[in-house]
């Protein structure tokens, strides 16, 4: 995985795993690799890998079972909430970038429905 320079690596890996949870590539209850394996998978520092799981646990997205491993949460509400959080982030991101190009919020929203109509034609 290529990392961008501006945000911490643990955050980038966390986002990647969250995406996998939302898309179902990591279904509820799935076992995640151990800390060292995660480090190897992404070629990152083992301390960074540990941090990733700490953050995910803090957000209630994984359960760390002592001596067993780390599992994706089986609470569907939590995953649903994650999905809408990430959707919000994506929309915010879109609106920010449009604002940077000089579009008002209303214009940005109109543009995206126009784009959608084009795509449907």
């Amino acid at each position: 995985m290529e990392f961008n320079a501006s945000s911490p690596i643990w955050m980038q890996v966390t986002t990647r795993i969250k995406t996998d949870m939302v898309t179902g590539r990591l279904p509820p209850g799935a076992k995640l690799p151990g800390g060292r394996d995660l480090a190897l998978q992404y070629t990152i520092n083992p301390n960074t890998a540990a941090r990733v799981y700490q953050e995910l646990e803090k957000e209630g997205l994984v359960e760390i079972r002592r001596g067993m491993g780390t599992y994706v949460t089986e609470t569907p509400e939590r995953l649903e909430a994650l999905r809408s959080e990430m959707a919000c982030e994506a929309m915010e991101d879109y609106l920010e970038r449009m604002a940077a190009l000089g579009f008002s919020r209303a214009e940005a929203i109109t543009r995206i429905s126009q784009e959608d109509e084009h795509a449907q034609e």
Binding site: A5, S6, P8, T48
Partner: peptide, 15 residues
């Protein structure tokens, strides 16, 4: 601390 540096300054160690 590499990740702290990124979080605080938005700088990678290459930067």
């Amino acid at each position: 601390d590499i990740d702290t540096e990124r979080a605080e300054t938005g700088c990678s160690i290459a930067d």
